[in-house]
């Protein structure tokens, strides 16, 4: 029996796994569905950003805020993000952007609380993460 086609089958499998793997740099501990928008902008320097993830807990329907790989209180966010910003070189600290990844069904009171917190800590630059509508 000819085995000439075996390497090809192996390659096909390899390709299959290559395309189905999703590279994810952060682990989402809550499921979120981002809102969609048209007028979007990209961020070129990802190292100048930090993400805050806001979504509802599936079972309890309580709003949860995830920062890095743990859940935090809205009141602690300012300190955590300031620490993150303080690690950047001085001349880059002004370019620090907080990326807010929130579920589209979140009530605004949660979002507003976070925004007030950011303002208190002079973290003025914010990006509302969205899916791009085409």
């Amino acid at each position: 029996m000819s085995t000439a086609s075996l390497p090809d089958i192996v390659f096909m499998l390899l390709f299959f796994f290559m395309v189905t793997t999703v590279i994810q740099d952060e682990k989402l501990m809550i499921e979120i569905e981002k809102p969609s928008a048209i007028q979007t902008e990209k961020i070129e320097q990802k190292d100048l950003t930090a993400s805050v993830i806001v979504g509802l807990n599936q079972e309890s329907r309580i709003p949860m805020i995830q920062f890095e790989d743990r859940f935090v209180e809205a009141e602690k966010l300012g300190n955590l993000l300031s620490e993150k910003r303080a690690m950047l070189p001085e001349n880059m600290q002004g370019k620090f952007i907080t990326i807010l990844k929130a579920d589209k069904e979140m009530p605004m009171e949660v979002i507003t609380k976070i925004k007030q917190q950011l303002r208190d800590f002079q973290l003025f630059k914010i990006q509302y993460a969205v899916n791009v509508k085409r």
């Binding site: 090809d8 390659f11 096909m12 390709f15 290559m18 395309v19 999703v22 590279i23 928008a37 007028q39 979007t40 902008e41 990209k42 961020i43 990802k46 950003t49 952007i97 990326i99 925004k115 950011l118 303002r119 208190d120 002079q122 973290l123 003025f124 630059k125 914010i126 990006q127 509302y128 993460a129 969205v130 791009v132």
Partner: peptide
């Protein structure tokens, strides 16, 4: 196999962070 590879290379897009940038007003 190569044809398939090329097809997926062309059609896959790496999800990029996009969003609306805003500057919050001072307190």
């Amino acid at each position: 196999a190569f044809l398939l590879l090329v097809f997926f290379l062309v059609t896959t897009t790496v999800a990029k962070d996009e969003g609306l940038n805003r500057i919050l007003p001072p307190k």
